[in-house]
Nucleic acid binder design. Structure first.
Lengths: 146, 146
DNA sequence: TATTGTTATACTCTATAACTATA
DNA sequence: TATAGTTATAGAGTATAACAATA
């Protein structure tokens, strides 16, 4: 099979397209896709998310999450609050303005994503989503023995 | 729809998994996935590929291809040959050793990819490949007017 | 005037290691 | 001793601009 049909190559190429399109849609709100991801997750959370949980869901190292939350904090979109249960833990919660920005940015990002995925029908997008979810393996990933 | 079901997010996460797995499989041959991509493409070409064509297929800027070909050249896996048709153009061709390394690395990368995609049946992988190809938009991409 | 390859630069992303304060 | 957050650093990936040689 020719290299251009390699799933890894196609996925990397497609992912790049989507990230670029999304970043372009978010630029007006001063966001990039990773900051937007953090903001979206904390907006969906009832009592805030710990940075560790954010790192887990996003598949990032906790040290990367620090920088992303710093960015959002500096922009006044989220706050770090002490956890009532564990003094080590900080819960990241959106500010009022953070929620507003997320909603507006979300509409733009969604519109641009729909445009980029325009070649696919709704059914095909659902199929793609389901297949990606299984490859992305968001559950607890079994690794080689440490 | 919850953020974790966003196709862009899932694609980025899945792509990262595949790239990491492939890089791990290629490490023994001293390659990374982008260098391996260039090597694969020139091995499939009859008379070599120009750097411009490589950039086009890979979706990279021509200046990035320069560095990748430099790496492969330094490792003795490819050579730059003058094009008989156009003295500006350099055709990148694999060395004998380049072909051998590509074959061995390709087997390892393919095996690791199959392992990473193990959750999907052959049919599902074919479906995924077809959907990704349409999103990746490898044809001539119509852009906004320049 | 336009294109191919190249150099240079800056910023983002990824990957580790080590430190602190708590548990 | 283990975990949550943090700092620091290095390498890889991405994005532009500008230049020489050639068409």
């Amino acid at each position: 099979m020719p290299f251009v049909d390699n799933i890894g190559f196609l996925m990397s190429r497609a992912s790049g397209q989507l990230v670029r399109a999304t970043n372009a849609a978010l630029a007006d709100d001063g966001l990039r896709v990773r900051q937007y991801s953090v903001l979206s997750l904390v907006c969906e959370s009832a009592d805030g998310e710990s940075q560790r949980d954010l790192a887990e869901v996003l598949g990032l190292d906790p040290s990367q999450v620090v920088a992303l939350v710093d960015d959002l904090d500096r922009a006044g979109l989220v706050e770090r609050r002490p956890s009532p249960a564990d003094r080590r833990t900080k819960l990241v919660v959106p500010t009022e303005r953070g929620r507003a920005v997320r909603d507006r940015a979300g509409e733009r990002a969604d519109a641009r994503l729909a445009e980029t995925l325009g070649a696919l029908t709704e059914d095909e997008q659902a199929t793609l989503r389901a297949l990606l979810a299984r490859v992305a393996d968001l559950g607890v990933a079994p690794r080689v023995a440490p």
